[in-house]
């Protein structure tokens, strides 16, 4: 499949075959196209960027051009089996609203974001500098990641918003990390549902 990374494949593995999927911040639609073709899934992507909307149209993936900051009013309660919010949360101002919206619209939400507590990041901060890594490739002054949190932080946030964490693990160097993910994984992955 063109454009399917190992991270994407791991996320795809979390989505049951035949699911109705909403992919928030779907990018060029590669994951949705893969889910449609390999797992018989259906649904929509949501994107704000013109070039990504066009890329989705070229792939034949349903895409709805929307600003996620405005919420998900287009989508009904529990109208999707799975809502994906992959590497998107860190760009949103209304983090909590989006989390609650994700749990409202989907029976299951799968959320991934860069784990700021990954050990190289900690090391960098201990040395007095903000981390610049593969997962966090930006300088502090030009990063699009307006929310930086950790694996452990998200557990607190989920509880605070009355969300049930169905599963959680880390992702690093092409594999799932289930042991000490807050330390050992560059990416945090949470499977959530309404509490």
């Amino acid at each position: 499949m063109s454009g399917v990374t190992t991270e994407m494949q791991l996320m795809a593995d979390q989505v049951p075959a035949g699911s109705r999927v909403l992919d928030l911040g779907c990018g060029d639609g590669a994951l949705l196209a893969h889910l449609q073709q390999a797992k018989g899934c259906s649904g929509y992507g949501v994107e704000i960027a013109d070039d990504n909307v066009l890329a989705c149209a070229r792939r034949g993936v349903n895409v709805v051009q929307l600003n996620l900051e405005e919420g998900l009013a287009l989508f009904g309660d529990q109208s999707f089996d799975v809502v994906l919010q992959l590497q998107t949360l860190q760009h949103l101002r209304n983090t909590e609203k989006m989390l609650r919206e994700t749990a409202r619209v989907g029976r299951v939400g799968i959320i991934s974001f860069p784990n700021f507590a990954h050990w190289p990041n900690r090391l960098s901060v201990v040395q007095g500098r903000m981390p610049v890594t593969r997962t966090l490739p930006y300088q502090w002054y030009d990063t699009p990641n307006i929310r930086v949190g950790t694996f452990a932080d998200f557990e607190v946030l989920a509880r605070r918003n009355g969300l049930a964490v169905l599963d959680s693990f880390g992702f690093h160097a092409g594999r799932a990390v289930r042991r000490w993910p807050n330390l050992r994984a560059s990416v945090a992955v949470f499977k959530i549902a309404r509490g």
Binding site: R20, S42, Y44, D50, V53, C56, A57, V61, N62, V63, V64, Q65, L66
Partner: peptide
């Protein structure tokens, strides 16, 4: 659940 793409 109709297939739709929307460009704004």
């Amino acid at each position: 659940r109709i297939d739709v793409s929307y460009a704004e």
